Amino acid sequence: MNEGEADDERGFFAERPFTLTADPTPIPPLVRQSKTASGPAPDKPHYHGHRDRLRVRFAEGGASALADYELLELILFRSIPRADTKGIAKALLARFGSFAEVLGADPTLLAEVKGVGASTALDLKIVAAAGSRLARGEVGKREILGSWNQVLDYCRAAMAFETKEQFRLLFLDKKNALIADEVQQRGTIDHTPVYPREVVKRALELSASALILVHNHPSGDPTPSRADIEMTKTIADAAKPLGISVHDHIIIGKSGHVSMKSLRLF
């Protein structure tokens, strides 16, 4: 059976308890105790007990009670209902390096790992999107500058493991609350075209009073380039006469982040 056929059966077969119903036809005792012609009934797959134990550990101790590969197993249980997922979880971590990098990986690369396939790769991306949406919800509930760690966590979740550069804009009102979060441009592995005029135009459309610029470096190193510095200065200079402040330009990499404001680069 291929993965697509298996996926269609998940809703009917996956993770359902098995109930033995009474047989209305009497069976002689000797027949009940004997083996069938084809041999004894197969044992329950060993991983079923493992799944139950892992769920109990999570229910009692939360995510902190599990290693990264075990938490990944929990996610894979529903996607791969009839197989041992421990080896698959460990193979994903070996391929991509960390739990976050697995969820941030490109779906086509995820599907290259033996046992994953396109449908399971999509399920992993859905989990990643849910995490990003949760982080964005935390950012949107409060004043941005007073919840800076949440802003950084959100930007990292959304962009750190992208394989191509993105240029993101956080638009703020007079109280520094989030009005909108938009990806203005997507580029290549090492370049994103940014148009200062379009940035300022969009800020005026949203009646924003301030901006936070964010982009990622797929190389992993968040060190700003000369082009990054010059572009930031150009946007800040264009926005200032219109009453729009640029609070910061954050560069996100796999190894961390850099605040250009903290480094006094503009």
Results as ranks from 00 to 15, higher is better:
residue 91 A to Q: 08
residue 67 A to Q: 14
residue 95 R to D: 06
residue 258 V to L: 02
residue 111 A to L: 05
residue 254 K to H: 10
residue 170 L to M: 05
residue 190 D to Y: 00
residue 201 K to S: 11
residue 137 G to W: 11
residue 54 L to S: 02
residue 98 S to P: 00
residue 86 K to V: 12
residue 56 V to A: 08
residue 125 K to V: 01
residue 247 H to A: 10
residue 103 L to E: 06
residue 108 T to A: 15
residue 36 T to Q: 11
residue 82 R to D: 15
residue 77 F to Y: 13
residue 68 D to F: 00
residue 36 T to M: 13
residue 183 V to G: 13
residue 31 V to W: 07
residue 80 I to L: 08
residue 136 R to C: 04
residue 184 Q to T: 14
residue 136 R to G: 02
residue 241 P to R: 01
residue 83 A to M: 10
residue 95 R to M: 03
residue 163 T to P: 09
residue 169 L to M: 08
residue 9 E to M: 05
residue 218 P to E: 01
residue 202 R to A: 06
residue 258 V to C: 00
residue 111 A to P: 00
residue 3 E to M: 11
residue 107 P to R: 04
residue 90 K to P: 02
residue 224 P to F: 07
residue 166 Q to N: 15
residue 35 K to S: 12
residue 247 H to E: 14
residue 28 P to Y: 00
residue 165 E to P: 05
residue 144 I to D: 10
residue 38 S to K: 12
residue 107 P to M: 03
residue 209 S to M: 11
residue 64 S to H: 14
residue 199 V to Y: 02
residue 227 A to E: 13
residue 213 L to D: 07
residue 46 H to N: 11
residue 110 L to I: 00
residue 256 G to V: 03
residue 132 S to G: 11
residue 93 L to N: 00
residue 159 M to S: 12
residue 124 L to R: 05
residue 14 A to P: 07
residue 51 R to A: 02
residue 222 P to M: 00
residue 63 A to H: 06
residue 183 V to Y: 05
residue 115 G to A: 14
residue 198 E to Q: 15
residue 48 H to Y: 15
residue 150 Q to M: 11
residue 65 A to Y: 02
residue 128 A to C: 06
residue 72 L to C: 13
residue 154 Y to M: 06
residue 51 R to K: 04
residue 140 G to E: 15
residue 151 V to A: 12
residue 125 K to G: 01
residue 216 N to K: 01
residue 205 E to F: 03
residue 17 P to Y: 09
residue 220 G to A: 00
residue 52 D to F: 11
residue 104 G to F: 00
residue 197 R to T: 15
residue 106 D to Y: 10
residue 264 R to S: 13
residue 70 E to H: 08
residue 89 A to G: 10
residue 142 R to P: 07
residue 159 M to D: 12
residue 71 L to Q: 06
residue 240 K to T: 04
residue 27 I to Y: 01
residue 79 S to R: 03
residue 137 G to H: 08
residue 263 L to H: 12
residue 94 A to Q: 02
residue 215 H to V: 02
residue 256 G to T: 04
residue 162 E to P: 01
residue 68 D to K: 09
residue 250 I to Y: 12
residue 129 A to G: 11
residue 97 G to T: 00
residue 150 Q to G: 13
residue 58 F to L: 09
residue 255 S to E: 13
residue 261 K to I: 05
residue 137 G to D: 01
residue 172 L to V: 03
residue 147 S to F: 10
residue 211 L to F: 03
residue 216 N to P: 04
residue 161 F to P: 11
residue 178 L to Q: 10
residue 253 G to H: 06
residue 51 R to Y: 03
residue 53 R to D: 14
residue 130 A to G: 13
residue 38 S to F: 11
residue 196 P to N: 09
residue 139 V to I: 04
residue 97 G to P: 05
residue 205 E to I: 04
residue 30 L to W: 06
residue 264 R to P: 06
residue 222 P to W: 03
residue 150 Q to E: 15
residue 98 S to K: 02
residue 18 F to T: 13
residue 143 E to V: 12
residue 132 S to H: 09
residue 249 H to D: 15
residue 255 S to W: 08
residue 81 P to W: 06
residue 97 G to H: 01
